[in-house]
């Protein structure tokens, strides 16, 4: 199918983007990497009337080191994220996550900001940002606000972004001493959206878990933090019994949406399997 007869604009500043959003409102959609939006346009699914291309907006940041954080601009592409020495050094979970994202040609074009703003429930980067305790920066003509990832997703493809706002960057805490991480997902084929996935980030101190976040993706209408399981692990050693307990807590907490191809029971089950596998891996690494 060919895309419908939409209009296109390419503002040369963030102010231009804001003006476009003000003018076109719900009819407009921001075009970043386009790796989802273009496919939807081509399929004439919920097609937008006006695409506002932000690819040449100069005032969006690249990857910037800040005290305690990395600031990652919305237009940073997956491939650049994985190749960035700053990311590899300070937020290695993100570098490890990128190979799970689709395929090389998609990773060359798809952007961090696009992935976060879309919020596909089975996507890797939103879950990683959730596990890392990142915060997104949302800008509009009225100013800039910062929202923690855990408050950003409100439902299926529903975010805290207001119609006049642009997600311009995400601020990610740098790793601390003792920090561990892991990511894995269950897919039928490499690069597919996950049937279930798990991103883990945490800190261990003297063999005990001081902090941990378990962000699951592909199992709900948005990426979700398994807080019950995390609470159970805090202050404990990652021994097999604790891992089993965490797994059970995760399974109990999941209620995946029904879908004609993959039943909820399957996603719930492999969510548990991932918890067991990744915590097992972390346990081995910590030992």
């Amino acid at each position: 199918m060919k895309a419908p007869d939409f209009a296109y604009m390419r503002p040369d500043s963030l102010d231009g983007v804001f003006a476009a959003l003000a003018q076109y409102g719900d009819d407009a959609r921001i075009l970043a990497g386009g790796q989802t939006l273009m496919a939807l346009q081509n399929m004439r699914l919920a097609a937008a009337d006006v695409l506002v291309d932000i690819n040449r907006v100069p005032d969006l940041p690249d990857i910037v080191e800040e005290p305690g954080h990395l600031l990652i601009g919305a237009l940073v592409r997956y491939a650049a994220l994985a190749e960035s020495p700053l990311v590899q050094q300070h937020v290695p979970l993100l570098a490890d996550a990128v190979p799970f994202v689709a395929h090389a040609a998609i990773r060359n074009r798809g952007t961090v900001g696009g992935s976060l703003a879309l919020g596909d429930p089975a996507a890797e980067i939103p879950a990683c940002m959730l596990a890392l305790g990142a915060e997104v920066i949302l800008s509009s003509a009225a100013g800039t606000r910062t929202i923690p990832m855990r408050e950003f997703y409100l439902g299926l493809y529903e975010t805290a972004l207001r119609p006049d706002e642009v997600l311009t960057a995400v601020r990610v805490p740098k790793r601390r001493p003792g920090q561990f991480h892991a990511i894995d997902e269950i897919v039928r084929r490499r690069g597919d959206f996950a049937l279930a996935g798990l991103a883990v980030s945490g800190v261990a101190e003297k063999g005990a878990v001081e902090a941990i976040s378990l962000a699951l993706f592909g199992v709900a209408d948005r990426p979700v933090l398994a807080t019950d399981a995390a609470d159970l692990l805090i202050g404990k050693a990652l021994d097999p019994a604790q891992i089993e307990t965490a797994k059970d807590a995760v399974i109990a907490s999941l209620d995946p949406p029904d879908d004609p191809i993959t039943p909820p029971a399957y996603r719930r089950h492999i969510g548990g399997v991932l918890v067991q596998r990744l915590l097992g891996q972390i346990r081995e690494k910590l030992a």
């Binding site: 386009g34 273009m38 491939a79 040609a105």
Partner: peptide
Amino acid sequence: EHGVCGACTILVDGVIVRGCLML
């Protein structure tokens, strides 16, 4: 035409991209 099959892969500024997912 929805970015999955890969048949339209080309190079833009030296890197491979999907030709159907770019205007």
